[in-house]
C-alpha cells in the first residue's frame, strides 16, 4: 500500500468512526431509550455472538443460496441474450423494445404474482432475484458487445475463424469487462432484492430475521441482519474485483 493510499484509507475511516462515536454518544447521553436505539457496543457484540450461532449462519446460508442461484441464472440468460441482440439484427430488433419496456418495471411489484404462481418457497424469491439481476447484465453485455471494435472480428475472420467462432473467440472475451461491470450492479441489486423478498414473505433468511426481531421489538437483533447484508455486499464486491483483476489482465486498467 502506498503512503497516499494509506492516508486515503485513514481519511475514509473518519466519517465511519464519527458515525459510530456519535451513535454511542447519543446512547450514553440518553437521547433515546435503548429499546429505540441500542448502543453500537451492544449491536456489534450481538453480531459477534451470532457469528458462532448455527441458527444465524443457517439463515445467512439460505439468503446466499437464493442470491447466488438467482444471480447465476441471470448471468446464464443475460450474457447470451445480450450477445445475440448485439450481433444479430433480428434478435436485436426483437430484444430492444422488450428490454425498453421490461427494464423500468419495478420487479418487486411482480413479486405477488410470483408468489401466486410459484409459491412462498425459494422458487419465487430466486425468480425475483433473477428478474432484477438480469437487466443490468443484459444491458451491459449488449452495450459491450455492440461496441467491440469490428477490426478485432475482421482480424479473426481473416485468420480463418468462422463467423460463429468469432462470437466465442472474439466478441465474448472482448465483452468481458462490460459483463463484469454489469455483474457488479446486478450483485448489489440481488442483495437488496433477496432481502426485501425475505422480509415480505418468508420463514427463513436474513430478511426474515429482521422482521422477526421487529415483531418481537428486539431492537438489537434488528441491526444484525442489516449489518450482515452490508458485509455480504462488500465481500461480493471484493470477490468480483479480484475476479476482474484475474480475468482482465490484458485489458486497460479501470478503477
Amino acid at each position: 500500500m502506498t503512503a497516499l493510499a494509506r492516508n486515503e484509507a485513514l481519511i475514509g475511516a473518519i466519517p465511519i468512526l464519527g458515525l459510530l462515536l456519535g451513535w454511542q454518544a447519543a446512547v450514553s447521553a440518553g437521547v433515546a431509550p435503548s429499546a429505540l436505539l441500542p448502543s453500537p457496543v451492544a449491536v456489534f457484540g450481538r453480531v459477534a455472538q451470532n457469528l458462532g450461532d448455527p441458527d444465524f449462519l443457517g439463515h445467512t446460508a439460505v439468503t446466499l443460496y437464493r442470491l447466488f442461484v438467482g444471480f447465476l441464472i441471470a448471468l446464464a440468460i443475460g450474457v447470451p441474450l445480450g450477445l445475440a441482440g448485439a450481433t444479430n439484427r433480428i434478435a436485436g430488433a426483437a430484444l430492444k423494445p422488450l428490454v425498453r419496456v421490461l427494464a423500468p418495471v419495478p420487479k418487486i411489484a411482480l413479486y405477488p404474482a410470483l408468489i401466486l404462481s410459484l409459491g412462498f418457497d425459494d422458487a419465487s424469491k430466486i425468480v425475483l432475484v433473477t428478474a432484477d439481476a438480469l437487466f443490468p447484465i443484459l444491458l451491459a453485455t449488449f452495450q459491450g458487445a455492440a461496441m467491440v471494435e469490428p477490426k478485432l472480428v475482421w482480424s479473426a475472420r481473416a485468420a480463418g475463424t468462422s463467423p460463429a467462432g468469432t462470437l466465442l473467440k472474439v466478441i465474448l472475451p472482448a465483452t468481458l469487462p462490460s459483463i463484469l461491470t454489469g455483474s457488479r450492479i446486478a450483485l448489489v441489486v440481488a442483495c437488496i432484492v433477496v432481502f426485501l423478498a425475505e422480509m415480505i414473505t418468508s420463514t427463513d433468511g436474513l430478511g426474515y430475521l429482521l422482521v422477526r426481531a421487529a415483531r418481537n421489538f428486539q431492537t438489537v437483533d434488528m441491526f444484525v441482519p442489516l449489518i450482515a447484508i452490508s458485509a455480504i455486499g462488500l465481500l461480493l464486491n471484493g470477490a468480483l474485483a479480484l475476479t476482474r483483476k484475474k480475468l482482465l489482465v490484458g485489458f486497460p486498467e479501470e478503477d
Binding site: E149, K151, L152, W154, S155, A156, A158, V170, P173, A174, L176, L248, V249, G250, F251, P252
Partner: peptide, 11 residues
C-alpha cells in the same frame, strides 16, 4: 489485414 488501430486481442 494489418490495421492502423493494430486490432490486437487485448486478452
Amino acid at each position: 489485414p494489418v490495421f492502423q488501430e493494430f486490432a490486437l486481442f487485448p486478452w
